[in-house]
């Protein structure tokens, strides 16, 4: 491999990893004050504080929320993406723009009237949270699946149909496996929308759903909690990562 390529790749690796390094060090630091280059005392105080703050149940809640959002936003996005990749949707451009519109809503705008409306309509808190987060995830799943369908070669399915497969069978046995990487990516992004949200979970959820981001945000709002924040942060990176690996393995096997 050319030296240039190798250097370039090393730079990319540093770019991705460097910001995480202080976090990893802090997670194992009991004491680390300036200008020390490394923590002066290593320990598990951060882990203990994180567990005390309820990180266990909170990450469970976050996981469930992420999975529910992914389970709703992925198929909806895939269906919309498929339709929009073709030319069948009337005013397709406008429909795509509409499906991307949740992106333009800043999350805090929820607190400027939408939350009142949901309360007026007596929408249960958990339903409201899932609805809003699914809507927030749909632009991602739609764009990803639309791109995947646009690049997808329908020839394979047609071949399967010519060979006598039913339409359903062609989708299940040919189309979905070929799109598995895109589907996994879409599901993953949707999962993350639920997994990492703060404003909607707190304000629309009415505090009933104390998820990991709520713990991170409140711990991060004061000095002296760096180790705890680092542990909570790494704790909020690992489960999605495990999910990604699992999805990746699953996709490969098919």
């Amino acid at each position: 491999m050319a030296l240039g390529t190798r250097l370039g790749r090393a730079a990319l690796a540093v770019w991705l990893l460097l910001p995480l390094v202080p976090l990893v060090l802090w997670a194992a630091a009991d004491r680390w004050t300036a200008p020390a280059v490394l923590p002066q005392a290593w320990g598990t105080a951060g882990l203990r504080d994180a567990v005390d703050s309820g990180a266990g149940t909170a990450s469970l809640r976050s996981t469930v929320l992420g999975l529910v959002v992914a389970a709703l936003a992925t198929p909806l996005g895939a269906m919309a993406g498929r339709a929009l990749a073709g030319s069948g949707v009337p005013a397709g451009g406008a429909v795509l723009a509409a499906l991307l519109s949740p992106l333009v809503l800043p999350p805090f705008a929820v607190a400027l009237g939408l939350d009142v409306l949901l309360l007026r309509l007596r929408v249960p808190a958990s339903v409201g949270v899932v609805l809003l987060l699914t809507v927030a995830a749909l632009p991602y799943t739609t764009v990803l699946m639309r791109t995947a369908y646009a690049a997808h070669d329908p020839g394979f399915e047609e071949e399967a149909r010519t060979l006598g497969a039913t339409a359903r069978r062609a989708v299940l046995a040919v189309q979905l496996p070929m799109l598995a990487p895109a589907l996994a990516g879409a599901a993953f992004l949707a999962f993350l929308v639920g997994w990492s949200d703060y404003v909607v979970t707190l304000l629309v959820g009415g505090g009933q759903l104390v998820t990991l981001p709520l713990l991170v945000a409140s711990a991060a709002s004061s000095v002296g909690n760096e180790a705890q924040v680092a542990v909570l942060s790494l704790g909020s990176v690992l489960p999605p990562l495990a999910l990604l690996v699992a999805v990746g393995l699953l996709g490969r096997r098919r």
Partner: peptide
């Protein structure tokens, strides 16, 4: 106990309710 990063978040929820 519901932990918030800013007490204003609690007030926001109450005002909306």
């Amino acid at each position: 106990r519901v932990p918030v990063a800013d007490t204003g978040d609690a007030l926001d929820r109450v005002l909306s309710e």
